[in-house]
Every structure is written in structure tokens, then in C-alpha cells.
């Protein structure tokens, strides 16, 4: 299924004019965003109904628990996860699909991820 909605946010790129004449007659939705906080960096890339998320965080807190819950909340169907610990950092790459009938913006995903990570940091420091 094709989508023609475009995101108008200034800090995001947009390839709405990208076309492959032999295969597609409609524009393919595509957008990406990068967000950073003190200890967390998030890249989100959306092509049609596929979402790729790269998450890098300093300090070793098991972030898979929080991220997997968040993906469920956002109606993202988990396809592939890879990652682990590198020095002081945790680095993960998630491949997901947007569930049918659901719609999401890259900025919403990135914002939520940063929020969840920072919240878990705060909780961890309290413990």
C-alpha cells in the first residue's frame, strides 16, 4: 500500500520527489530525523511503512526492556534487532514495520525514545 502524506517539519528531510519510473507510479513516503540528549542519540528513518531506528546510549542500562515496550505502544511490528555493548556505550539497530491502520512521524518516535531513555536514567540514578 502506498502513502502520500508528507511531513512538514523543518528539521526533517524529505524525498517525496524520489521516483523509480519502472516500478512506482506514486511517490514513496520517506523521512528521517536525528535527536540527541546528554546520554542518548537516536536516528529514525521511515520509508513507506518501514521504520529503522538506531539507538546509541552512554552508560549501561538495559534499554531493551524500555524500547521494546515503547515499540509496542507505538504499534511498530518488530522485525529485527541487533546490538550490544561497546565500551561505555550500548548501540542497537531496530527494523520495524508500521502496523496497518496506524500512522507515525519520525519526530514522534525519536522524541518518545529520548524521553524513555532519560526517564530510565533518572530512575536508575535514584535506585
Amino acid at each position: 500500500m502506498m502513502r502520500r502524506r508528507h511531513e512538514g517539519e523543518a528539521d526533517e528531510g524529505d524525498f517525496s520527489t524520489l521516483q523509480e519510473p519502472d516500478q512506482y507510479s506514486e511517490n514513496l513516503r520517506s523521512s528521517w530525523i536525528r535527536r540527541k540528549s546528554k546520554d542518548t542519540e537516536v536516528d529514525v528513518r521511515i520509508v513507506d511503512n518501514e521504520v529503522t531506528i538506531k539507538l546509541v546510549q552512554r552508560k549501561k542500562i538495559d534499554c531493551l526492556v524500555h524500547v521494546s515496550h515503547l515499540l509496542d505502544q507505538l504499534n511498530l511490528d518488530l522485525q529485527h534487532v541487533a546490538g550490544g555493548h561497546i565500551g561505555d556505550f550500548c548501540s542497537y539497530l531496530f527494523n520495524t514495520k508500521i502496523c496497518e491502520g496506524s500512522s507515525l512521524y519520525a519526530s514522534a518516535i525519536a522524541h518518545k525514545l529520548i524521553q524513555v531513555m532519560d526517564t530510565s536514567f533518572a530512575a536508575a540514578s535514584l535506585a
Binding site: 521494546s68 529485527h80 555493548h85
Partner: peptide, 23 residues
Amino acid sequence: RFSKLMEALNNFGIELIDTNLAT
């Protein structure tokens, strides 16, 4: 399912170091 698995391991005090999931 993945969320519940992560939650269970976390509750047992198990840390995942290098992880991969394929579907």
C-alpha cells in the same frame, strides 16, 4: 512477546550484553 521476555530477564537481574533478534 519480546517485551515480556526482556522484562522477565531484567527482573531476574540478568543483563543482556550482545543481542540479536531476527524474525
